[in-house]
């Protein structure tokens, strides 16, 4: 599959990446080449093959629903770009 700059812009929006307009053609070229490589998968008929989500086909391990981690809000917020009064600051969302 070949992607154009409009499709790259759409995917970039989904991925929350601000791609510069001048870089879009290069991304379109690289992504198209990668998809072409990936589409070599189509040479094989996989009808009825069970998808493999986990190398060991393990079931998800569960644990009791109990608090296991202490509250470390201050420690974790000390590495945040902007916090105030225990809250993460972001630009105004609601007008």
């Amino acid at each position: 599959m070949s992607l154009g700059v409009a499709e790259v812009a759409k995917i970039a929006h989904l991925a929350r990446l601000a791609i510069r307009t001048e870089d879009a053609p290069a991304y379109a070229r690289n992504l198209s080449a990668i998809l072409e490589l990936v589409e070599q998968m189509n040479a094989v008929d996989t009808t009825g093959v069970a998808p493999m989500a986990h190398p060991l086909d393990m079931a998800q391990r569960l644990r009791p629903d109990e608090v296991a981690e202490p509250n470390q809000r201050e420690r974790f917020q000390s590495i945040a770009p902007r916090v105030e009064a225990g809250l993460y600051l972001v630009p105004k969302v609601i007008e």
């Binding site: 992607l3 970039a12 929006h13 991925a15 929350r16 601000a18 991304y27 990936v38």
Partner: peptide, 21 residues
């Protein structure tokens, strides 16, 4: 979008885009 575009290099952005697609 800007934090991510500035923070990640080209190969990482390519792989994120392929995955998102």
């Amino acid at each position: 979008t800007r934090s991510r575009a500035e923070g990640f290099g080209a190969e990482v952005q390519r792989r994120i885009l392929v995955g998102a697609f």
